[in-house]
């Protein structure tokens, strides 16, 4: 076996040498640890993004000028500046506001991806709400529901069905975007992978495995998105 390996050059040396794979698979704890952090940041970030998305989505679909304007500013700001700039801002600038203030990196990650994707989800929610005919709003209001009550009991449950596919798509993007934490030593999967790879030079196998771990998190959601879209189309 080793003779066979010896004859095939790229398995013996180079970026994908067997020894590198062995080193990686022998030291997976760091990656698992990073994966755990990524999952935590992604799930908390998604919860924050959903909450912000619903609130700002309702605000920007309303006819009240002030809430609508606030929502537009939020959405346009976060959609049109890079996530990396936002994360650096939270990481470097906010602690300078008060001496000794320390924000755990994981919190930065949750706030960063949460606010960034909250803006996108807000647009998804707004489009969903606006796709529900005005007759539903009028029916709710005519029965004495408040605007918020009509949204909660009548409009949003219907809009949710429609926005579910684009929402899962946002979840995929959010998971991938947690990798920006790597640049501020976030301890996430990308960071764990990169620091392991950098220490020993095992870049090739490490990036492949890290990429595959992201893939295994995202691909089921992508499949779910497609299923939901099909179901929605069938239901019409």
């Amino acid at each position: 076996m080793s003779e066979l390996i010896g004859r095939i050059g790229f398995l013996q040396e180079g970026p994908f040498a067997v020894a590198r794979w062995q080193a990686l698979f022998g030291n997976m704890e760091q990656l698992w640890q990073g994966l755990l952090v990524t999952l935590q940041v992604a799930s908390l970030g998604l919860a924050l993004a959903l909450a912000l998305g619903v609130v700002f989505g309702v605000m920007s679909s309303s006819t009240w000028r002030l809430p609508c304007a606030i929502a537009r500013v939020y959405v346009e700001f976060f959609q049109n500046t890079p996530l990396l700039v936002q994360v650096f801002m939270i990481f470097n600038v906010i602690p300078m506001l008060s001496k000794g203030m320390f924000i755990p990196v994981m919190v930065i990650g949750v706030i960063g991806v949460g606010m960034y994707h909250g803006a996108y989800i807000s647009e998804v929610v707004r489009a969903g709400i606006q796709s529900i005919g005005s007759g539903q709003l009028e029916a709710g209001l005519s029965q004495g529901f408040s605007y918020v009550g009509t949204m909660r009991h009548i409009i949003i449950p219907q809009a949710m069905r429609i926005v579910l596919p684009p929402l899962t798509n946002q979840a995929v993007n959010l998971i991938k975007n947690t990798s920006v934490l790597a640049v501020i030593a976030g301890g996430d999967l990308m960071y764990a992978g990169d620091s392991f790879a950098g220490r020993h030079g095992h870049y090739g196998p490490t990036y492949i495995v890290v990429g595959m771990l992201y893939f295994f998190m995202c691909f089921p959601l992508a499949v779910l998105t497609r299923r939901l879209e099909e179901r929605l189309r069938a239901g019409e």
């Binding site: 539903q136 009028e138 209001l141 005519s142 219907q158 069905r161």
Partner: peptide, 20 residues
């Protein structure tokens, strides 16, 4: 207005039932 609407019910041309 919302309070008064509780006792002023409306039936619409397009029914506007809650489909969900």
């Amino acid at each position: 207005v919302a309070k008064v609407r509780q006792s002023v019910a409306m039936v619409f041309q397009q029914f506007n039932l809650y489909p969900h």
